[in-house]
């Protein structure tokens, strides 16, 4: 059972308190009706699914209820960094370099 730190509660809790909520930083288009079918499909369904670092959304569903973002390594299952909703997405390439050091 992984431990995940909630950036709002400031504590580490077992994974079972959390719910995964898909890839992060996919903003809902401001005016969906102006999008082509292809653009809408891109928003709805296309995800990066990388082997390595992935920015994803989690929710402290059984705690404070807040959604937050996390960078997780899909290979090692390790959380590299966790940040609040609305904060900028970290530079993944830089994180990879840092992790290697």
């Amino acid at each position: 059972m992984l431990l995940i730190t909630c950036p709002y509660c400031g504590v580490e809790r077992p994974e079972i308190e959390f719910r995964y909520a898909g890839e992060a930083h996919i903003a809902r288009p401001a005016e969906p009706s102006k999008l082509t079918d292809e653009e809408w499909a891109e928003y709805l369904y296309m995800r990066t699914n990388p082997k390595g670092l992935l920015a994803e959304r989690w929710r402290h569903a059984h705690g404070c209820g807040r959604f937050f973002n996390a960078i997780r390594d899909t290979v090692s299952d390790r959380f590299v960094t966790i940040y609040k909703m609305g904060e900028a997405k970290p530079d993944l390439e830089r994180l990879v370099v840092e992790a290697a050091q």
Partner: peptide, 13 residues
């Protein structure tokens, strides 16, 4: 409730 919280917290804060 989770669906509504999702939109409220992440799309329309």
């Amino acid at each position: 409730l989770a669906h509504l919280e999702d939109y409220l917290q992440t799309e329309w804060p």
